[in-house]
């Protein structure tokens, strides 16, 4: 009886030691050299795994940063922002240029009031499904479909639908500019724009490329491509292409001349101090 136990223990011990030795040499032989900096970089990232950087997740982004260092120009974590990137740069011991912080901007003002409904959609409530079927329940085939794919795509709870207007509203505090909503919107309405000085921004809140009369008929607040804003802009920041104005946020100096000039009110200025009664939205 005792001998059986002793033998068992002895054999198992010998087996364990022998296999441990084998495993040790195998592990040494097939050791994967991983840059320890990847772990360090990952530790300073936000860990949201949102994919806003263009990589599969935070780990992949950390690897990408380590691989592309010392030049971090192509690496940017929108969630961590400039502070986060400074931390990454510090870990890697390199310099990184600060990027202008951005925010998601909804470029449609086709509220129920501005844009009358021409038909009723009774299908599955998803913008992608709706867009694949037809142009939408209003006369405007470019505008917001209002099913909230962007709300579902946002991992930070920064977008919500306004029941009054039927349009999505971005919470600037929560928005990290990861771009998930930009990708989710089948109509390409949402754009990442520079946050601007003291959060002040001027943008064209319309993406309608129809000719003026057709655009106006579909929506009261549509850009009709008249080009008045182009003439008014002293900084050549505005271009009109395919009957649609676009303000280049890198050139815009926030003078708001275009806002006053726009006949349909398609150009929005947000977060300006309320001196003139023209601050709209949000």
């Amino acid at each position: 009886m005792t001998t059986t136990i002793i033998w068992t223990i002895a054999i198992l011990t010998i087996l364990g030691v022998a296999l441990a030795v084998v495993l040790y040499f195998v592990a040494e032989k097939f050791k994967v050299e991983e840059d320890p900096r990847i772990d360090q970089v990952e530790a300073v990232l936000p860990g949201a795994n949102c994919g806003g950087c263009g990589q599969a997740g935070c780990r992949a982004f950390a690897q990408f940063c380590v691989e592309s260092s010392p030049n971090l120009d192509k690496c940017f974590c929108p969630v961590g922002g400039n502070d986060g990137m400074q931390k990454v740069a510090a870990v890697l011991g390199v310099e990184v240029a600060a990027k202008e912080p951005q925010v998601a901007v909804v470029r449609c003002n086709g509220s129920c009031e501005n844009r009358p409904r021409t038909n009723e959609y009774g299908g599955y409530q998803s913008c992608r499904v709706k867009a694949a079927l037809y142009s939408g329940d209003t006369g405007c085939s470019f505008g917001c479909l209002g099913c909230g794919d962007c709300v579902a795509a946002c991992q930070f709870g920064a977008i919500s639908m306004d029941p009054e207007t039927g349009l999505p509203v971005v919470d600037e505090e929560k928005c990290t500019a990861c771009g998930a909503c930009v990708k989710a919107c089948p109509k390409n309405i949402i754009e990442l724009r520079n946050k601007g000085r003291r959060n002040m921004r001027v943008f064209v809140s319309c993406v309608n490329k129809d000719k003026g009369a057709a655009a106006r008929k579909a929506c009261k607040a549509a850009c009709i491509g008249c080009g008045k804003c182009v003439k008014a802009c002293p900084f050549e920041a505005i271009t009109v292409e395919n009957n649609l104005a676009y303000i280049d946020f890198t050139k815009c100096k926030l003078c708001k001349k275009c806002v006053a000039e726009c006949p349909t009110g398609a150009i929005h200025a947000v977060n300006f101090p309320v001196v003139k009664p023209k601050a709209t939205e949000e």
């Binding site: 037809y134 142009s135 939408g136 006369g139 085939s141």
Partner: peptide, 10 residues
């Protein structure tokens, strides 16, 4: 020129 088809697209 553009005109809307039955799905409302130009």
């Amino acid at each position: 020129g553009p005109r809307k088809d039955l799905a409302g697209n130009n």
